[in-house]
Design a protein around this nucleic acid. Structure first.
Ligand SMILES: [Mn+2]
Ligand SMILES: [Mn+2]
Ligand SMILES: [Mn+2]
Ligand SMILES: [Mn+2]
Lengths: 225, 225
DNA sequence: ATTTATTTTTAGATTAATCTAAATAATATT
DNA sequence: AATATTATTTAGATTAATCTAAAAATAAAT
């Protein structure tokens, strides 16, 4: 049977999913431990547990990879996390930099019908407040083509669809600049010296972003004119 | 510091609250164990833990009582449970007999601002879908005067505000009779032989209720005419 | 190819929450 | 008052999840 996973097991599966989504490689113990804010010994213990349950593939010294069943669970957690974030922002009026920790708890509520109804109540959203795609019930999410403002060509225009960083300080900085999801961005100039860029938001005045900030701002390419 | 209670500790506090709400006596080990679906040994262990934390008063062989701090926590859990039940019914369209188990999970989400916003989003309700009062932030709830249909005088009129039983079979039976919270009831007759009663719902046709059903239907007294 | 450094795994402890079975205390019954 | 019954507590184990410290394997550097 499904045998009901613990919150901890679910969180590990999600961490393995997120880490391997970037690298496409098997997830090594140290990276997993760091992501989970725990020790390599603990991560190793859990990896063995999850392998036992046929949720991940694991061989000694060779890291972990999600198996079909584990990946499906991970995507369900991601789906719930992002749907709840939409609820918190759209319905309860939270700001987008306040919702992650609460969603971290809500994502573990076990009730398929709850998520079905929540999805409908929210109007079947495809993106969370940070622009990350929401997997559907089958774990499929439409991958929008993206690039960071730091790497995009001059004169590129696009729409901000994601911020690759949950750091509250960054999110608040963006708020103060009037930058939010859905903002239309034009990339005007790039200083080769430090990688900083000048941009305009919604055809407003020129503003400057450091490379560190620009790297975290993902846009969909709409127009290169 | 608050030191963050576990779900289990919260559930025990809530159970102690509910059991002692009826009897006004200290809660004995066996009753607590039964309510928690566990063994007396486990309940006894937990009672010692909670006493250690000054949440409950406890002396060997003399049962447990909530202390100020523990009662406040218990009432917060009850508040969250009932607010979430309102959400599930009013916003997501669940039926009132489907929400308890989900609320049992949601009640443990830790975020005061979430509950504040949820309360506002729901329009500051004072009753949950089963007619139970929702404690405010200070743990105060307005106690409506209630009586069961089984004990009320003939010709009493009132509004159904609670069903004293979570049994799905009962709740479905009531649904089939068109009886729900907020229904206006007139008590027409009572058979002394078996305690069954005839009533009308919302001035509709005469319907019969067994004593067992009538006992679980609580009304507020509006009119004795 | 050795040596050094890093990563990964194991061994052994700890804490929360639970259980079974046995012991003890409190009640109830003769 | 002695005995039987019931309620409560303790003793000893178990499981999940975690840790520290030590051992083993792999990778990197000389
Ligand atoms: Mn998030
Ligand atoms: Mn989580
Ligand atoms: Mn309930
Ligand atoms: Mn609960």
């Amino acid at each position: 049977m499904a045998s009901e996973l613990s919150f901890t097991e679910e969180n590990y599966l999600k961490a393995i999913y997120h880490i391997s989504a970037e690298s496409n490689e098997s997830v090594n113990t140290n990276a997993l431990a760091e992501s989970m804010n725990t020790t390599p010994a603990s991560a190793n213990d859990m990896v063995k547990r999850l392998a036992q349950k046929n949720l991940i593939g694991y061989q000694k010294y060779k890291g972990a990879t999600l198996l079909t069943k584990g990946k499906k669970i991970a995507l369900t957690i991601v789906r719930k996390h992002r749907l709840w974030e939409v609820f918190l922002v759209d319905k309860l009026g939270f700001k987008w930099d306040e919702v992650h920790e609460i969603a971290e708890q809500l994502e573990h509520i076990k009730s398929p019908s709850l998520i079905k109804r929540l999805d409908k109540f929210l109007g079947f959203p495809t993106m969370d407040p940070h622009g990350d795609p929401i997997p559907n019930e089958d774990g499929i999410m439409k991958q929008t083509r993206r690039a960071s403002i730091a790497e995009v060509a001059i004169n590129t225009r696009g729409i901000i669809v994601a911020v690759n960083n949950d750091d509250t300080l960054l999110l608040q900085h963006l708020d103060s600049l009037g930058i939010k999801l859905g903002s239309r961005v034009g990339v005007l100039e790039r200083m080769d010296f430090d990688g900083s860029v000048s941009i305009s938001i919604d055809d407003g005045p020129k503003q400057f972003l450091s490379k560190a900030v620009a790297e975290n701002l993902m846009i969909t390419l709409t127009d290169t004119k």
